[in-house]
Measured scan of single mutants.
Amino acid sequence: NPITQSQFVPLGEVLCCAISDMNTAQIVVTQESLLERLMKHYPGIAIPSEDILYTTLGTLIKERKIYHTGEGYFIVTP
């Protein structure tokens, strides 16, 4: 039996792509809307728990890849 190979993409990278897409579409990015986006637009991805999502978003903020305001999460533009 051949083994199907899937590509590994770090969660942080997927979140940045999803946040960027949602920002472009002017969709408010909350943790809930982000999870919905992942389920709908990234089939096959293991949906992270709320704790993992929260921690990963926190890491992306520390790395200055995203920022959070009262209006949601946004990509940091250079």
Results as ranks from 00 to 15, higher is better:
N1F: 06
N1M: 10
N1E: 04
P2E: 03
P2G: 03
P2N: 15
P2H: 15
P2Y: 15
P2V: 03
P2L: 15
P2F: 15
P2T: 13
I3E: 08
I3H: 08
I3S: 14
I3P: 13
I3Y: 15
I3V: 12
T4Q: 09
T4L: 09
T4V: 12
T4I: 13
T4G: 05
T4S: 13
Q5A: 14
Q5V: 11
S6E: 13
S6Y: 10
S6D: 15
S6N: 15
Q7V: 12
Q7M: 13
Q7S: 10
Q7C: 14
F8D: 11
F8S: 15
F8N: 15
V9M: 12
V9Q: 11
V9Y: 12
V9T: 14
V9F: 09
V9L: 12
P10I: 13
P10Y: 09
L11A: 02
L11Y: 06
L11W: 04
L11M: 04
L11Q: 00
L11H: 02
G12H: 12
G12V: 11
G12C: 10
G12D: 13
G12W: 13
G12Q: 15
G12S: 15
E13K: 08
E13Y: 02
V14R: 09
V14N: 03
V14E: 06
V14H: 10
V14W: 09
L15D: 01
L15A: 04
L15Q: 03
L15G: 00
C16K: 12
C16W: 07
C16V: 07
C16A: 06
C16Y: 14
C16F: 09
C17K: 15
C17P: 01
C17A: 14
C17I: 07
C17L: 14
C17G: 15
A18D: 02
A18Y: 07
I19L: 01
I19G: 00
I19N: 00
I19H: 00
I19V: 05
I19Y: 04
S20Y: 06
D21Y: 06
D21L: 02
D21A: 09
D21S: 07
D21W: 04
D21N: 05
M22R: 00
M22F: 00
M22D: 00
M22E: 00
M22G: 01
M22A: 00
N23I: 01
N23D: 02
N23Y: 02
N23P: 00
N23M: 02
N23L: 00
N23C: 02
T24P: 00
T24N: 13
T24W: 06
T24K: 10
T24A: 13
T24I: 10
T24H: 08
A25D: 14
A25N: 12
A25L: 12
A25G: 05
Q26F: 03
Q26L: 03
Q26G: 11
Q26D: 12
Q26I: 01
I27Y: 05
I27C: 04
I27W: 00
I27D: 04
V28K: 11
V28T: 15
V28S: 11
V28H: 13
V28A: 12
V29W: 01
V29K: 00
V29F: 00
V29S: 03
V29Q: 00
V29H: 00
V29N: 01
V29E: 02
V29C: 13
T30S: 07
Q31N: 11
Q31M: 10
Q31S: 10
Q31A: 10
E32L: 03
E32T: 07
E32N: 10
E32D: 08
E32Y: 04
S33Q: 02
S33A: 08
L34G: 00
L34M: 03
L34I: 10
L34T: 00
L35D: 00
L35W: 05
L35A: 07
L35E: 04
L35T: 10
E36V: 06
E36G: 06
E36S: 09
E36N: 06
E36I: 07
R37C: 04
R37Q: 06
R37L: 04
R37E: 06
L38Q: 01
L38V: 12
L38H: 00
L38C: 03
L38D: 00
M39C: 08
M39W: 09
M39G: 12
M39H: 13
M39K: 14
M39Q: 15
M39E: 12
K40I: 05
K40E: 12
K40Y: 08
K40N: 11
K40V: 11
K40F: 09
K40S: 12
K40G: 11
H41G: 07
H41F: 09
H41Q: 11
H41Y: 12
Y42K: 15
Y42P: 07
Y42F: 08
P43C: 07
G44D: 11
I45P: 03
I45L: 12
I45Y: 12
I45K: 05
A46K: 05
A46D: 11
A46F: 07
A46G: 08
I47A: 07
I47L: 12
I47V: 14
I47E: 05
I47T: 08
P48S: 03
P48R: 02
P48K: 04
P48Y: 06
S49L: 03
S49A: 06
S49F: 04
S49H: 06
S49Q: 05
E50A: 11
E50Y: 10
E50L: 11
E50W: 09
D51Y: 07
D51M: 09
D51P: 10
D51E: 10
D51R: 09
D51H: 06
I52Q: 12
I52H: 06
I52S: 09
I52Y: 09
L53V: 11
L53C: 04
L53Y: 06
L53T: 02
Y54P: 05
Y54T: 13
Y54N: 14
Y54R: 15
Y54A: 15
Y54W: 06
T55S: 13
T55G: 14
T55P: 03
T55F: 12
T55D: 14
T56K: 05
T56W: 05
T56Y: 07
T56Q: 05
T56D: 01
T56H: 13
L57E: 00
L57Q: 01
L57Y: 03
L57S: 01
L57K: 00
G58T: 14
G58M: 13
G58E: 09
G58V: 14
T59G: 10
T59W: 14
T59M: 11
T59E: 15
T59F: 09
T59V: 12
L60V: 01
I61R: 04
I61K: 06
I61T: 07
I61M: 14
I61W: 02
I61E: 11
K62Q: 15
E63F: 03
E63K: 13
E63I: 03
E63D: 07
E63A: 10
E63C: 09
R64C: 04
R64L: 03
R64S: 04
R64V: 03
R64N: 11
R64Q: 08
K65L: 06
K65C: 03
K65A: 03
K65Y: 03
K65F: 02
K65Q: 06
I66K: 02
I66P: 00
I66F: 00
I66M: 02
H68I: 04
H68G: 04
H68T: 12
H68L: 10
H68R: 11
H68D: 08
H68C: 11
H68E: 13
T69G: 07
T69H: 07
T69F: 04
T69E: 08
G70I: 06
G70N: 09
E71A: 09
E71S: 09
E71G: 10
E71W: 04
E71Y: 03
G72W: 00
G72P: 00
G72N: 04
G72K: 05
Y73F: 04
Y73P: 00
Y73W: 06
Y73K: 01
Y73V: 02
F74M: 15
F74W: 10
F74N: 07
F74H: 09
I75P: 05
I75Q: 12
I75K: 11
V76H: 12
V76N: 11
V76E: 10
V76Y: 06
V76K: 11
V76L: 11
V76G: 12
T77W: 04
T77P: 13
T77L: 07
T77C: 06
T77F: 05
P78C: 05
P78M: 02
P78S: 13
P78F: 03
P78T: 04
P78R: 08
